[in-house]
Simulated assay, not measured.
Amino acid sequence: MMRERIAVLMGGASAERTISLRSGNAVCAALTRAGFDVVPFDPKLRDWPELTQEGVTKAFVVLHGRGAKMGPRKRYSSGCAFPIREVVC
């Protein structure tokens, strides 16, 4: 059985980038232990279309900071073909 691929959106360009990366790495570790195939994704360093090219089926948003809290689901899921889970910090 193929493991589900989940992207963890973390980092970004906000002033809280460091804590977002720390939180995102913890989420990546937990999801990996739970048996998921995890794709760490930093929207500051990579373009959104790369996720669909990598076969990602879901995204877990762990972005921090003002911009992230103002609607990452809308911003990052525009035109996305898979569900997004959002963590608001």
Rank of each mutant, 00 (worst) to 15 (best):
L9A: 00
P49H: 06
A29E: 15
R17V: 06
R33H: 04
A15R: 09
R17G: 02
K58H: 15
E50M: 04
E86A: 07
A59I: 13
D37M: 03
C28K: 01
E86M: 03
P72I: 04
W48L: 08
A68E: 12
V62A: 09
G67H: 15
G71L: 10
R73A: 04
R73K: 05
A59P: 07
N25R: 14
R73G: 03
S77C: 07
E86Q: 10
A29L: 13
T57M: 07
R85H: 04
G55F: 09
R85A: 07
E50C: 02
C80T: 10
R33K: 06
A26F: 03
Y76W: 15
K58C: 08
S77D: 12
E4G: 01
D47F: 09
A13Q: 13
K69W: 12
T57V: 14
V61S: 01
R73V: 15
G35Y: 11
A7I: 13
P40N: 09
L45E: 14
D47S: 09
I19P: 04
F60G: 00
A81Y: 09
V87D: 02
A13P: 13
A29D: 15
L21W: 05
S23F: 03
P43E: 15
E16I: 02
M10V: 04
R22P: 03
G71H: 11
G24Q: 05
T57D: 08
S77F: 11
V38D: 10
R46Y: 09
T18F: 11
A15F: 05
D42E: 14
R33D: 14
V39F: 09
G79M: 15
G55T: 11
V56Y: 01
G79D: 15
A68I: 13
G55D: 09
R66K: 06
I84H: 03
A34F: 13
M10C: 02
S20P: 08
R85W: 13
G71V: 12
F82E: 11
D37R: 03
D42V: 07
R5P: 12
G67F: 13
I19Q: 13
V61K: 00
R33S: 04
P83L: 08
R85Y: 13
D47P: 02
M70A: 15
F36V: 01
T32C: 00
I84K: 00
P83E: 07
C89P: 14
S77G: 14
E50H: 00
L9V: 03
E86T: 10
F82Q: 05
S23D: 12
M1F: 13
D37K: 02
L31T: 00
T18N: 11
H64E: 03
T52M: 10
E50W: 05
G65R: 04
L45T: 08
T52V: 14
D37F: 05
F36Q: 03
S23A: 02
L51W: 09
R3T: 14
L63K: 01
Y76M: 04
R5T: 08
M70E: 15
V88H: 07
I6W: 10
A13K: 08
G24P: 05
M70H: 14
V56N: 02
P43K: 08
R22K: 09
V56E: 07
S78M: 12
D47Y: 05
V56C: 02
V38F: 07
P49Q: 06
P49C: 08
G71E: 10
A29F: 12
V8M: 01
M70D: 15
G55S: 09
P72W: 11
F36M: 02
V27A: 06
R66V: 12
M2V: 06
T52R: 03
P43V: 12
G71Q: 10
